[in-house]
Design a protein around this nucleic acid. Structure first.
Lengths: 139, 139
DNA sequence: CAGAATCCCCCCGGATACTG
DNA sequence: CAGTATCCGGGGGGATTCTG
């Protein structure tokens, strides 16, 4: 985070608003977006999420859900049955948050061909002789 | 990433589309969004960006810009002057990408108060007695 | 079933110094 | 000015094991 420990936000300068950059970087854990998209259809149980979000570990699922719950985006409901089950669902805040999230995901999905093409061209342009400035191997 | 190494995307399942999750996780480096928002107003030079994106190191700025250039989102133009200057600007693809990005940033900005309140309540709820399931128990 | 706890590796990313 | 190269510490996150 930035210098400011309290989340005070005076100007519309994201870099000066800790909460904004925190929330944005939360998307980057790469699981948050997927989890939120999964929850759009309605409540889901822990094991459902774990099954549907391919590749996520239970640890990361737990951490992701906990963070979202803390932000008031997700509501957690425990059913004291045997065996126990827990349901997760988007709050109203979460629903409204899901909108820009989905827009973003949709954009990426519908443009990923273009992106991949651009990447291939970039790589071809930079690996052979000319001006080959490799920084770090990407991908 | 997932099992699939090539970026093939068959179904509308983000978790099965490497490119989608890669692009989404790129937002999480926490600089990408800020850089893109800065470039919305028009072309900017390297040093301008470094000055405006508060807290970013030249290393991270370079890496972020390089990645965005590779994705075809940003165009890099070198002017062989003395001293040299380099301009960065959004491509058409980048402009369209900026839209959902901005939506996201705006949402976070206009809801950060609610989020902070939710966090405080969550923390208060979980540190004292009540069903206190704290994740990390220190000491 | 839904987690919590522990171990441990990797890489992100900051700081610093050097170039064309 | 606009990078590049190198060192290095902290933490993100996977795999595994244990519990109510």
């Amino acid at each position: 985070m930035s210098q400011n420990d309290n989340g005070a936000c005076n100007s519309y300068d994201p870099s000066k608003c800790p909460t904004v950059s925190e929330m944005l970087s939360r998307l980057g854990d790469k699981w948050t977006v997927l989890v939120i998209m999964m929850l759009r259809d309605g409540p889901k149980r822990f094991s459902e999420l774990k099954r549907d979000v391919v590749g996520i570990s239970q640890r990361m699922l737990t951490l992701t859900l906990r963070a979202l719950e803390r932000d008031g985006v997700v509501r957690r409901t425990v059913f004291t049955t045997v065996p126990p089950s827990v349901e997760y669902e988007l709050t109203d805040l979460g629903q409204s948050f899901a909108e820009p999230i989905v827009s973003l995901g949709s954009w990426v999905f519908s443009n990923h061909m273009t992106i991949q093409k651009a990447r291939r061209e970039f790589d071809a342009r930079h690996q052979d002789g000319r001006a080959g400035q490799k920084l770090v191997r990407i991908g």
